[in-house]
Structure formats: C-alpha cells, structure tokens
Simulated assay, not measured.
Amino acid sequence: MINIGRSGIQVDQEPNSCPVCNQLVSPNRTEMFKEVYTDNPHFSRYLSGLYECPSKKCGHLFLAHFERKSEHEGYTNGYFTYTHSTPNHFKPIAFDDRISTISPSFVEIFNQSANAEESGLSEVCGMGYRKALEYLIKDYCVSLQPDDSEKIRSMMLMQCINKYITDTNIKECATRAVWLGNDETHYQRKWQDKDIDDLKLLINLVVHWVVSCLMTQEYMQSMQRL
C-alpha cells in the first residue's frame, strides 16, 4: 500500500503511464486529491488525484481514479484500488498490414475495445474483444473460401473454426479464445483462473499464426519449385 500523504488514505498503486502521451513514466503526484461520497456521507467510495506527466515533451496534468473495493470501513481491502486515468488519449494498436487488409473490422473493433478498457470500462470491453475475434476468424475463413462467404458469415463461430480452420495453431488458440470470450458475455464464468488478459493474449496468438500462414502462402506462391 502507498500512503499518499493524507490522513488514512492509502492506495494499492499509482499510475505508471501518462494517458495523454501514452508513455511509461513515473508521474509527479500533487497534493490535490478528492474523495467522492455516494450513498454513505461518512464513507467515500471513490478517490481522484491530480498528477503531472514528468516528460518534457508532454507535461500535461491528468486525473488518476481509484475505487474502494470493500463496502465497510475497517476491512482489510478497505483501501483504494487504482482503476484508470483521464483524459484518455488512446493510441490505436497497429496490426500487420495483412490483418488490416483481410479484416479491417477486426482492427477497428479490437481498438475500440482496448480504448474502452483503458477508460476503465472493464465490464464491457471483454464483449468487444469477443466480437473482434469473430470478425477476424470469419474474415480469414472468407479469404480462404470466398465461395462459401455467405455460409461462413451466418455460421456459429465454433462451427466456422471446426469446419474451415485447418492450421492447428490457429484452431487451438482460436478455440480457447472463444471459451474465454464467451465468459465475458455470460452471467457465470467457467474459467475462473483466466481473465481478460488471457483473452487478449490468445487473440494476439491467433493474429500471429494467421500472419504466419499468410506469409507462408505468399512465399510458396512467389517461389515455385524449379
């Protein structure tokens, strides 16, 4: 826990990046912190603190937002947990041009989801990542089997993976990404020991293996056996 210099106020961590310039930094803490009270006028639920980016190229002020996780004072988790910083100047994630060409919708949806996650919308971004995955898989399958495009677009995602994905690495990673993606949309989670970071990692693995397959095809076509 970190004591921020005010009586009884401690946080689990402070921001380690600037939301304006998107650089990893150690922001300068100011003395301006404000507790936010909701239902209980004697027990603050949220905390906001003003920080300054130390980068000479930036130097912007920004707010770090914290939330008290316990419902009552005196609990061991009755301190504030860092959630996010604002204003959020999201820097889009760049994907290989092959992915952008095959599935521009995947790139757009994935970046919107990442933007939501950086803004602290942790309960909804997972559904966005799951949607991005579906676009990536189906658009890739359409590129492989254009004659079946309408059928692919209307199929359930797992059916599409089982029928059209032949590469073992893509299939296994995509299948597990679907499992975790479904957890983000359902009331009860099946994979209690996995979280949204695992989902993003699996999606990135799918991207990696799709790019590898596309690159392999390019060289096989451009370099025929003599």
Rank of each mutant, 00 (worst) to 15 (best):
Y164V: 09
T185W: 07
W191Q: 13
M156Q: 15
K163Q: 13
E184L: 03
N169S: 09
I137V: 14
Y187V: 03
D193C: 12
R189G: 05
S149N: 13
I170F: 10
L157S: 02
R189Y: 01
V178D: 00
K194V: 00
H186R: 11
K138V: 08
N182F: 02
G181V: 01
Y164Q: 14
K190E: 01
R176D: 05
V142W: 05
K138R: 15
R153Y: 07
G181P: 03
T168V: 10
S143D: 09
I137T: 11
D167V: 07
Y187N: 04
Y140M: 05
S143H: 08
C173R: 15
D193Y: 03
R153T: 08
D193P: 04
L144R: 11
V142M: 10
N182I: 07
R189L: 08
W179G: 02
S154C: 02
D183Q: 02
C173G: 08
N162G: 14
Q192Y: 06
K163G: 02
E134P: 04
S154A: 07
D139E: 11
N162Y: 09
N182C: 11
E184P: 03
G181A: 10
P146L: 04
D167W: 01
L133M: 08
S143P: 04
K194S: 11
Y140H: 06
C173Y: 13
C141P: 05
S154P: 02
P146E: 07
W179L: 08
C141S: 14
D193A: 09
V178E: 01
M156R: 11
R176L: 05
I152M: 05
S154Y: 01
M155Y: 06
S154D: 12
A177Y: 00
D148S: 12
Y187H: 09
A174F: 08
V142P: 02
E150V: 04
C173S: 15
C141G: 06
T166F: 08
M158Y: 10
C160N: 01
K151W: 03
R176N: 15
C141K: 03
I170M: 10
S149L: 06
R153P: 03
C173L: 11
I161P: 01
T166Y: 08
K138F: 06
C160A: 08
L136F: 05
T168E: 15
C160P: 02
K194E: 10
M156P: 04
L157T: 00
Q192D: 13
D193E: 15
D183K: 02
K163T: 13
I137H: 09
N169K: 15
T175R: 15
L136Q: 10
S154N: 11
S149C: 07
W179P: 01
K194M: 07
I137M: 09
G181L: 00
K138P: 06
K171Y: 03
H186K: 06
M155T: 06
Y164S: 14
Y140N: 02
M155E: 11
D193R: 09
M156F: 05
A177M: 02
K190P: 01
R176M: 09
T185K: 12
H186F: 08
Q159M: 07
Y164R: 12
V142T: 05
T166K: 14
R153F: 02
M155K: 13
S149G: 09
N169L: 12
W179R: 06
E172Q: 14
D183M: 04
T175Q: 15
